[in-house]
Every structure is written in C-alpha cells, then in structure tokens.
Amino acid sequence: MQFQSLHNKVVIVTGASKGIGHAMSLLFAEKGATVYAVARNVGLLKALAASTESTDGSIIAAPCDITRSSEVQALITRVIEEKGKIDILINNAGIGHFGAIHELEEQQWDEMMAVNLKGTFLTTKYTVPHLIRRKSGHIINISSVAGTVTFEGGGGYCTSKFGLMAFTDVLTQELKPHNIKVSVICPGSVQTHFGGTEPKDYALEAEDVAYMAYQVAAAPKNVILNQITMRPVVPQPK
C-alpha cells in the first residue's frame, strides 16, 4: 500500500493544548504538516507552538472557543486565507464529568454537550463547504469506547459520545459523494487524567492515539479507515 505524505498538508486539531490533541499536533508537524492548534488556553498553545522541533512542519497557535459560532467561523476563515486550504480537520476537543445521572449538575451536562457535540458540529459545519468545493479532505473525529458501550456513572459522557458516533455516520454518508473521507477513532482509557480520574498504569498513551490518527490520515487515497477502536492490553495476573 502507498501511504500518503502529510508534507504541506494543512491540519486543524481541536483540544490541542494538552493530552491527545497536544500529542497529535506534535506528531503531525513532525510528519511535515502545518498544524493549527486550537484550544482556549492561549499560554499552553503558544508553548506548544514553540516546542515543535520539526524542520518540515509547523504548529500555529489558534485560540478559539469551539462552542461559539462566531469564533469558529473566524478560525476557518483565517486558515483558508492564510494557507489557501484545509486538508484535515481533527475534532478532538472533549470534556467529561462523571457521576450518577441524577447527581450531575445541569451545567456539567450542558458543558459536555457543548464541547463534545456542538463544538464538533460547528467546526465541521464551517469546514465542509470548503472541502466540498475542493472535492477532497478528511474529517477525523476522536470519540471514545464510551461511544460504543455504556458504563455506570457515564450517563452524560456516553450520551455525548454516542451522539458523536451517529454524527460521524451521517457525515460519512453525506460527504462520500464529494470524495471527502470521514473517520472516527474510539480510544479506551488514556493516561491523560481526563475528567479528573486517575489513569491505570496500563492505559494507552496519548502518543498511541496520535499515531493512530496519523495512520488514519496517511492511509492510501483509495482507503477509508472509517472506525477504529483502541483498547490497552490489560496485564494478566501472574
């Protein structure tokens, strides 16, 4: 198989200030892409942009609240004006609050739906017309195993991630006639202290998920890696 080069590709990564998004930004830049790293924390984004050692690619800090339509529109317009194109959109931003459904605060529920679903909707909404005009591009959504199976205490988070899976399926159908790829990656436990939880020692590394995203993006032109589930190998008791 002939894998694609990411050299000179323009990539948007949301939730880039830490965790999986941080790792993806560094890896894609290392592979030669120009990465617009998107998050709300300006300081962390600037530090990320300055930390890349790539001589081929680059990371550009792009502060944006993806739950705000006007900011997302401005972001997409900026990228197209500066680089002339968008090749890959990675919807990675996510937030999790965990607890029994009746104990979740309304604000916690709203925040998960806003970031995990509405944010992905907005970045996609304003990017897709550009991709359709170019008749090329790739949208990669970072979901979770929690988007495929439920667990106690995950009512709000699982709801948002199951919604993201449905969103991805519909998007796949709508964009297939326009030669636009759509993929979703569903990692299990990752060592990122996500949602304030303590990760297990054997959990996936953020770099593991980043490398899978790279493989999905670099797959041969005639191949769509549509849905990938990643789980850590659980050590067996001796």
Rank of each mutant, 00 (worst) to 15 (best):
G188A: 09
P187S: 11
P177D: 02
T192C: 13
I180G: 02
T172L: 07
F167A: 01
L171F: 08
N179K: 14
C186N: 15
H193N: 10
T192K: 09
D169M: 13
V184C: 13
V170A: 04
G196W: 10
K181A: 00
L175R: 01
V190W: 08
L164M: 14
L171P: 05
K176R: 13
L175D: 00
V170T: 15
P187E: 09
L171N: 07
F162M: 09
E174D: 10
P187A: 11
P187F: 11
T192Y: 11
F194P: 07
P177W: 03
V170H: 03
Q173W: 07
G195P: 10
M165C: 13
E174P: 04
G188V: 12
T192W: 12
H193Q: 10
V170R: 05
G196Q: 09
N179D: 08
Q173E: 08
T192M: 10
M165I: 15
L164H: 10
G163I: 14
G196N: 11
I180N: 01
I185S: 04
Q191Y: 03
I180L: 01
L175I: 00
Q173K: 15
V170I: 15
T168F: 04
G196R: 12
M165A: 13
T172E: 05
Q191I: 03
F167P: 01
I180F: 02
F162R: 11
M165L: 15
N179R: 14
S189R: 15
N179H: 12
T197R: 15
D169V: 07
L175M: 00
S189M: 13
I185R: 06
D169C: 09
K161H: 03
G196C: 09
D169Q: 15
K181W: 00
N179W: 06
K181G: 00
F162P: 06
T192D: 08
L171R: 06
K176C: 02
